[in-house]
Amino acid sequence: MGAQTGGGGVSAAAGVALGMVGGAIRISTPFLFVSLGECITEKSGRVNLGLEGTLVMGAMAAYGVSYLTSSPWLGVLAAGGCGVVLGALHGWLCARPRVNDVAVGIALMLFGVGLAFFLGKPLIGPTAPHLPSVSLGWWSASGQVRSALQVNALFVLGLVTTAAVRFVLRKTRWGLVIRTVGESADAARAMGYDIARVRLLATMAGGFLAGVGGSFLSLFYPGSWNEGLSSGQGLMAVALVIFARWDPVRCLLASLLFGGASALGPALQSVGVTSGYYLFNAAPYVLTLAIIVLTSSRDRALLGQPAELRMAR
């Protein structure tokens, strides 16, 4: 066995580590976009559980538009546009009396995924132009390092977005309005803000980012449209927001951690460690659960949690 793993223990371990770094960057991007989007929405005091539908819809739209126009960036925009429309539907429905936002989210998840599969049937076959990638590993002679640091343009955009969301939420008047609405609707109302409108816009913005996250799936990694594309990543990303405690930078870290853990199973197998692969493949879920349990507290609410939020108590 040892003889067949080739380079022996040290380089195998290094290979696994490199694989995880590369995997973290590859896998984390859709999580990052969706969780940033949900972060904005939840900061305004509303939960959109339907971003799984938005993600899949975005993936389909991006692939279709990229295929038809040969411009992947137009595809990204189309994906964002789909997200805005679904977000607006969510915001509009939730603004009506007695309509529950969690239920609307579940409905939109079903609707978005169903519509994407419906419209996407003819797109399973064709191949669409891809998004470009940026080589951050030019300094290294090692092919492994270079390929691990072959970073997608959307990931870079995701880093910029993280900083931007953080800045907007913390330092700008818009951010203040969103946070006020999320912390106390009464106070916001007293200050003369239109709560429904703020939440509508926050949900639309969140939808835009989630749609863009979907375009990454179909236009870069794995880079193809089919019905197994998401496997619940949108839903997981919404969960990661609670894990990240409504902080954009922590959303980034959580996404990277989740991506790295997801890459563990394949990376280990690629150097010959294949036993118990189901359990390795479950690593990101176990790890996330363990961290949540360890960081939760019996008696107080999570830090950074918008008080108006229904689901994230």
Partner: peptide
């Protein structure tokens, strides 16, 4: 070198497996 994904159809895992193998 073989990688088992554990699923008959799971594109993200398959892509990750392909990349891991190519990296090796």
């Amino acid at each position: 070198t073989v990688i088992f994904t554990g699923d008959w159809s799971m594109p993200v895992k398959e892509a990750e497996a392909a990349n891991s193998l190519i990296d090796q």
